[in-house]
Structures are given as C-alpha cells and as structure tokens.
C-alpha cells in the first residue's frame, strides 16, 4: 500500500495525543498551572494536527463534513464522529481543569473512554479490510491501542518530570511496561504478517482470475503501459525497498533506545527530564518508521491481477 505521509503522521500523532488525553482524564496529571496548560495543549495539539493531517489526504476536502453521517456502517465515519466527540468532552473537562482548578472525574473518565474508542476506530479502518491480509487481524487494533498507551505514558512522564511534578517516576515505570507490551504485540503482528501473503490468504493470481483451476497463471501483458492509480495506491512497491533497514530503525529508535533511556531516567537521579524527552523523541521517530512499514509492506489483493507480490517477497522478521 502507498505510504502516504499525511496518514502516517495522522495515525502516529493522534495515537499519542489521544493516549495523553485518556491519562489526563483518569486523573494522572499534575497540579502546577504550567504542567496543566502544556499537557492540555499538547494532547489537543497532537490529536488536532493528526486529524488535520488526515484531511490533507482527501482529494475533495470541502466535502469532509459528510464524513460524520455514516457512523452506522462505516468505521471511517465512526472515527470522525468519535474524534470530534472526544475533543469536545475533553475540551469541557480541560476548561474546568485549567480555569476552575477542578478535575471533574466523571467527565474525565468519559473523555478517557472516548479517546480509547477513537484510537480503536482508527485501527478498525485498516483492520476491517479483507483486501489487505496484513491488516485484517485483531492484532492491528491491539498494536494501535498499545502504541497509543505507550506513547501517551512516555509523553506524560516527560511532562511531569519537566515541570517537576510528582509521579514522574511511577508513570515512567508504567511507560516502560507499556513500551515492552506494545512491541511484543507488534512482534506478534510482524510474525503473522510474514506468513500472511496474498497467496496464503487465498487471494493469489489464480483465485483473482479464477484461471488457477486450469493451470499455473502468469501475468503476460498489463492493460496499460504506465502505472495507474491502482498501482500507485495499492501495488506500491518502492516503499518496500528499504524495508529491512527501516525495520531496524523502527526497533532501534522505537523501543531499544527509549527503553534504555527510560530505565536510566527511572534509576538515575540526574537529568531525568532530558533523558525522558530524548526517549520520547526517539520513540516518535521509531513510530514513524513503524507506520511507514505498516503501509509499505502491506499488500493489497488487487496486486494479484498485476502478478505483483505472488512469490513471497515479504521481509522476514528482523
């Protein structure tokens, strides 16, 4: 699949933003005014930048308003509705948190639940697609939710530490745990993906054309002489070229370095804030690589009509 930058940025940032929102909502935030403002602005900012970035991916963004109408059937519509709902409820909670010095528990918990469901609906936009065997698994929502939690916890720990609030240390310990869990889930996702080729999913060239019942099928001549929308969007092969290197970047920057830095931050008495901030930046960079691969490595059933992705070209785990 074509790794569109707008969608990569959107899913990464909104996951972290909604993650932080739900943690603030359940009352894990600090007390200082500087912390509160920064935390709320960042949570809102990450989510809103993510959502705006997803609008950039539309060819006719002027009609985006209609996307709130089909929540009964469409996960993408649900995602839109839930995002706005979450931003609204969290906004109300944040008003009380910022201006009235009050943490309205019920409203905060509602915002937290909505934030989690929003991230889930984002993941279901991909997990619902039977046409992309890599994505069509419950592991996809698990990955999105786990990374949202890990990113949110790392951001919260960093903020607590930067503003000298209490609780930075236990939150950082939770971030460690969440990071490990998230990457274990991702490892399971990658293991499954390595086995889930188009042919293995029963959507190879033989089934696509139905000619497999006669004999071995090979694409002889394509219908057009230069690539079309389908090939650019769904049989995108360029992004796979550096898959192995990018996977190392994703693991190195996304989990290995942050783990090391957060452990140092938890157990060393010095430079905690700086270490956590560095861990967060590294984690986000790793996540962008992970999300690039999520798209670039995923193969769409339509590639079979073009004879692409029939031999197993997927990179093995690591």
């Amino acid at each position: 699949m074509h790794p569109a930058l707008s969608v990569i940025v959107f899913t990464t940032l909104s996951g972290i933003g909604f993650g932080l929102m739900s943690l603030l909502g359940i009352g894990l935030g600090g007390d200082g005014l500087a912390f509160r403002w920064t935390a709320v602005v960042l949570a809102y900012g990450f989510a809103v930048i993510g959502l705006l970035s997803s609008v950039a991916h539309l060819k006719s963004p002027g009609r985006a308003i209609y996307a709130f109408s089909q929540w009964r059937s469409s996960w993408l519509s649900r995602e839109g509705v839930l995002s706005i709902l979450t931003l609204g409820v969290f906004g109300l909670w944040a008003l009380a948190y910022l201006f009235m010095d009050r943490n309205i528990g019920a409203l905060g918990i509602l915002a937290a639940v909505l934030a989690v469901v929003t991230v889930y609906s984002t993941s279901m936009v991909y997990a619902q697609l039977r046409t992309v065997p890599h994505w069509a698994t419950w592991l996809t929502p698990a990955v999105f939710l786990a990374f949202g939690a890990a990113g949110g916890l790392m951001l919260l720990a960093t903020l607590l530490s930067v503003f000298g609030e209490e609780g930075a240390r236990p939150v950082a310990q939770f971030a460690l745990l969440a990071l490990v869990i998230a990457w274990v889930v991702k490892a399971a996702w990658w293991q499954r993906a390595a086995k889930t080729t188009l042919v293995a999913a029963g959507s190879g060239i033989g089934e696509a054309t139905g000619l497999g019942r006669i004999g071995r099928v090979r694409a002889f001549e394509p219908p057009h002489t230069s690539p079309n929308y389908l090939m650019r969007e769904m049989a995108f092969e360029v992004g796979r070229k550096r898959a192995r290197a990018l996977r190392r970047v994703a693991i190195g920057a996304g989990v290995v370095l942050p783990l090391f830095l957060v452990i140092l931050a938890v157990y060393l008495p010095i430079a905690t804030a700086a270490l956590l901030l560095l861990a967060l930046v590294s984690h986000i960079a790793g996540m962008l690589a992970e999300r690039w691969l999520f798209f670039a490595e995923a193969r769409h059933a339509v590639a079979s009509f073009y004879g692409i992705g029939q031999a197993d070209g997927d990179v093995a785990f690591l």
Partner: peptide, 27 residues
Amino acid sequence: EDRCMGCGLCAWACPYGAREMDMDAGV
C-alpha cells in the same frame, strides 16, 4: 459524486481494483 470527498477508502476495500480516483475531479 456530490458527496464524495475523495478519501479513497472504497478503492482500498475493493479486491478487484474496480474503483479509480479521478485525479482531475478529485472523486
């Protein structure tokens, strides 16, 4: 087409490559 915002998700959902985005009209 008056309601299509050109997100392209339907083309992703179709296994047959039956839908193509019009790059001029954005639908």
